[in-house]
Amino acid sequence: MPVTATAPVGKHCLAAVVHDLQVAWPDNKIVNIIAFGHSVPAGFGITPAVHKRDAYPRLLEDALADAYPHAVLNVITAAAGGENSQQGRERFARDALAHAPRVVLIDYGLNDRGLALQASARNLAAMIVEARAAGACPVLLTPTWDEQAAPDRAGDPLGAQAAMIRRLGELTDVPVADSLAAFQNYRGDRHQLMAQFNHPNREGHALVLGQLMPLFTPSASQP
């Protein structure tokens, strides 16, 4: 799907956001960031318990508030447990873009294993187009860990999702927070990062935060 943007794209887009996060009162602006996706950004731990304070959207808001103490910022979670990108695409305008976001984080890799890879890519591409048309910066996330997956094995659906998301990011000039790579590169016991087999705990979410925060630093976001 061709991507046509009415707003700056890629790092140029995030550079404007980072600039605005640094502006002090009375010239500062509200910066809304939407965390959109399935159960992981929603904060599900051991289903059906939700631990919002331990999930990466909350960790991101706290980290950005520390980094940019003059910013009026909100990280708004608009994620639904059990959802895939087809379902998310249907509510994207209502639940994400209606908040006038500057940034939209899109995280569907775990659940999109139930879709054909091409269908998943089309859904993500459509959300990228819609976000940019609304003046928002899209950011893609690769999936977090699943203890029942083997992403290093050829043909593994989790690894295939991650590879597709990375490629889509390259094709559309969209930043990618590579959560799966962070889990794969972790040198400790990955089980200690998980609340249940497919939901990270606070320590697992902190790995995702480690992939997101560099996107919101002045040096990384400058064109």
Rank of each mutant, 00 (worst) to 15 (best):
G109T: 13
V17N: 04
T142F: 10
D112P: 02
D146I: 10
A149K: 11
H38E: 13
A177G: 09
L14Y: 01
V75N: 05
H191R: 15
L215N: 01
R91L: 10
V18D: 00
L171Q: 13
V176E: 03
A220D: 11
N111K: 01
D66L: 14
T142D: 00
G109K: 10
A136W: 06
L110F: 11
L73Y: 01
A71V: 05
I76C: 01
G159Q: 12
N111G: 04
M164F: 02
A42Q: 14
I34F: 07
I33Q: 08
V23K: 05
G43F: 11
F216W: 02
H191G: 15
L140K: 02
S85I: 03
A160P: 03
A116V: 10
P175Y: 10
H70E: 12
G88L: 03
M1N: 14
N84P: 10
E130G: 00
V104Q: 06
L64Y: 06
E83F: 09
S221A: 11
P26A: 10
A220K: 03
L64H: 00
P138A: 00
H191P: 07
R122H: 15
R187V: 15
T172W: 07
V50K: 14
R202D: 07
E90P: 01
P175T: 02
R122V: 13
W25R: 13
S120N: 09
A220I: 03
G135A: 08
S39D: 04
A79C: 03
T217I: 06
A7R: 11
C137F: 04
D95E: 12
G114M: 11
L209V: 00
A63T: 11
E83G: 00
H191K: 13
A133H: 15
D189E: 07
A42E: 15
A93C: 08
K11Q: 14
R91D: 11
F92M: 02
Q118R: 12
S219N: 14
G155W: 10
A162L: 04
A133F: 09
R122T: 13
P175K: 05
Q22M: 14
S219V: 10
D62Q: 13
A220L: 07
V72T: 13
L97V: 05
A16D: 12
A35F: 06
R53H: 13
I33L: 09
A24D: 09
N201R: 01
G37F: 09
K29P: 04
P48V: 08
V129K: 10
A35Q: 03
L207K: 00
A79M: 05
L60P: 10
R187Q: 06
M127K: 12
L60K: 10
H51I: 01
P151E: 09
L207H: 03
D107Q: 01
L115M: 08
A177C: 11
D189P: 06
M1K: 11
V104P: 06
F44D: 08
V3P: 00
D152S: 13
G210V: 05
N123P: 02
A177T: 08
A121C: 11
C137N: 05
I165N: 01
N185F: 12
L209R: 00
